[in-house]
Nucleic acid binder design. Sequence first.
DNA 1: CAAAGAAATGTTACCGGTAACATACACACG
DNA 2: CGTGTGTATGTTACCGGTAACATTTCTTTG
Lengths: 348, 348
Amino acid sequence: MSLKNVTIYDIAREAGVSAATVTRVLKNSPSVKDATREKVRKIIDVHGYAPSSVAQDLGSGNTKTIGMILPSIRNPYYADLVSAADAEARARGYSLWLYQIPQEEKITAGVVGNLIARRLSGAFFIGSFVDVDRPDLRLLLDKLGKYMPIVAICPPRENLGFICMYHNLDGAVRQAVRHLNLLGHRRFAMIGGAEHLEDSGARALSFLDELRILDLPAPPEYGHLGGGDPSAGQQEVLRLMTRLPKEQRPTALLCYNDLVALGALHQLRQMGLRVPEDVAVIGCDNQFFCPFTAPPLTSIDMQTEEHGRSAVRELLSASKNQSATIVRDASLIIRESCGAKLGWQDRG
Amino acid sequence: MSLKNVTIYDIAREAGVSAATVTRVLKNSPSVKDATREKVRKIIDVHGYAPSSVAQDLGSGNTKTIGMILPSIRNPYYADLVSAADAEARARGYSLWLYQIPQEEKITAGVVGNLIARRLSGAFFIGSFVDVDRPDLRLLLDKLGKYMPIVAICPPRENLGFICMYHNLDGAVRQAVRHLNLLGHRRFAMIGGAEHLEDSGARALSFLDELRILDLPAPPEYGHLGGGDPSAGQQEVLRLMTRLPKEQRPTALLCYNDLVALGALHQLRQMGLRVPEDVAVIGCDNQFFCPFTAPPLTSIDMQTEEHGRSAVRELLSASKNQSATIVRDASLIIRESCGAKLGWQDRG
DNA sequence: CAAAGAAATGTTACCGGTAACATACACACG
DNA sequence: CGTGTGTATGTTACCGGTAACATTTCTTTG
C-alpha cells in the first residue's frame, strides 16, 4: 500500500517523541515512562512497524546471516542438513542465505564478490566439491576465510585452515563388510562416487582393509566409481554384471549413497537378479526412502540432522580463520537389502 | 585476518582519491581517467574488496533478496522448486533467504516482524499451508503484503489479494482415471493429503467427476486422506485393504504425492499384493525416484522447475498487492505401476 | 593567451537504525 | 529556596555506500 516503508522516524513523529525513545521502547528499556511506552507501542502496532534489519546490520556490523554454499538443495542429504541448520540458526536469531553453486560451475570473481559483499556472519561450505585440485575453490575459500568464519561440511581432509566437519564411515563400512561376510558373501564391490573425491577414497580404504583382514579378494577393476546419482548405480551394476565373467561378479555392493543404491536396485531387478538372495546392496546416508525401497535398503546413518545443528553451533562460536576438525561417527542400519529378514539381528 | 572489513574509504585513502571515485571505478563509469582506474582497481584486488551490499541495500532501499517461506526444504517437491527459483533469481541479481515454518508451528508476531524487518524485495509463500482457516497465516500474509509483493505457490484458491500460482491437475487426473479404466480397473481410491487441503479437494473433484462420466462407482469412505508422507500411504493401504470387504477394495490408487505412493507400494508389497497386476498405483509430482521404484511409478508431472523459475519472474515484475492467478498444467507420465509395461502407449 | 567547455574528481547529504552523550524536569533535602 | 540526584527524553554521530551537485583541472579555440 504505502510506497515507502515506515521508518522509526515516522513512528517517532507520530508519537511526538524522538527516534531514540522509539528504539528504547523496541528494546524494552526500563527508562521509558509507561504512558510514553503505551503510546509508542500503539503506533508501532497500527503500522505493523518492524525496525529495518538492513539498517541494524549496517550499524552493528553483524548481519546475523549465514551463507549456505552448496551444489544443489535437491540432493536430499543436503536438504536434511540445511533444514536442521536452519532450525538451529533461527533459534539463535540467525538466518540462512542460500547460495547454490552447481558442481560443474567454475567459480568466478563475481561469485566471490557476491559472497564477500553480503557481509555474512559466517558461511557453510557444503559438498563433495571441496577439492584442492580446483584452484577456483581454493581461491574462494581463502578469500572468504579472510572475512568470516567458515565451516566446511565435506569429505575428510587435511587441515584446510578452517573448521572441517565430516563423517567417519570407517566403523560402519567395516561392520557392513563383516556382516555381509558372515552371511556368506565373498565377492564385494563399491560403486558410485567419483574417483577424485576424498570420501570415496576414505571409505574405500576401510573397505579394502577390512577385506584384507577377512582374507577376502580385493574386487577387480576397483576404482571406477562413476557418480552420485541413480543412473550411476544403474550403469555400474550393468558394467559389473555384464563385463565381468560370472565367477568374478560381486554378490555384495556397497554404494556411495542411497541414490546410487536406488539405481543399483533398479538395474538388478531389471536384470532378473534378486536382492538380497543373489546380490546384497548397502547404501549410505539413510535417506527417507530407505525403508520403502524393494527390498528396504540397508544404509549407513550419518546423523545428518545432528550434524547440521552442530555445524551451526560450531560456526557461531568460531572466529575467522579458526581451524578444527570435527568428526561424527556413522552407524549401519540393517534392513533387508543385505540379507537380513525383518527382525534379524546383526551378529557381526 | 583483519578484524574489520575493508571499506570503500580504506580503498579511497590508499589510492589517494575520494570514495566517489572508487564507486565510479566499481560501476565502470567512463568518466574516470585510465591511470586512476588502474590504480584503484589494483588496490581493490589486493584487498579483495567488494562493496557491502548491506550499505548498498540501505541506500537503495532494495535488498534484492527474496524470502522463501515454506514448511520444510526436506520435501523434495519444495527442494526442486527452491533450487530452480534460486538459479533464476541469481541470474537476475537476486538471492534467496530461507525461512522454514514447520506446518504445525503457530506464526507469532515475532515471525511476522522478522520477515518485515528484512525489507525483502518480495516473498514466496510455498506450501499446502495456505489456509484461510488459520488466522495466523492470514495475518502474516496480510501484513507482509503491505510491504512487498508476494507470490503464493499453493493449492488452488480464490483471490487472495496477491499472486497465486498452482498446478491444474484436472486433465492429468482424468487421464489417469480413463487410462486405468481402459486397463480394466473399476474400483478407485485416492489416498494421502489432508482433508482440509484445497488441492486434495480440487483433484478429488476431477477424480469423482471422471468416475461419474465413466459411470463408475464412487469409492466408499472417500475423504479420509491422512497425510503427505510415506507412512500415510502405508496406513491408508492397510486401512483400505483390511477394513473393506474384498469385493469393495480398490484396485487402483491415486496418491496425493509420490511420497505417499512410495509408502503405498511398500505396504502393498508387504501384504503380498502385486503392482500393477493386483493394484495399480499412481503418484504425483514425478519426483526423482519415480523411475526407480518397484515397479517404476506412474506419476503426474508438475513442471516443477519451470514453475519455480516462472515464479521468480512473476515476483520480480510484480508490485505490492498485485493480484493474479497463474495456473500450470500437469501431465501424466506413464510408467509400470499402473499396468503399462515398458513401451506401452497411452490410448486414453 | 584567456575564456569557454568538457573531463575528472571532490563534497555533501541521505538511507534507517543505535549508542553515547547531553539536557530538561521533578522531587527531596539541608 | 538553592542544590543534588534521578528519571525521562532529546541530540548527535556513525555504520558504508551512492547520487546529486560542486569544484578543479585540463583542452580547445577565437
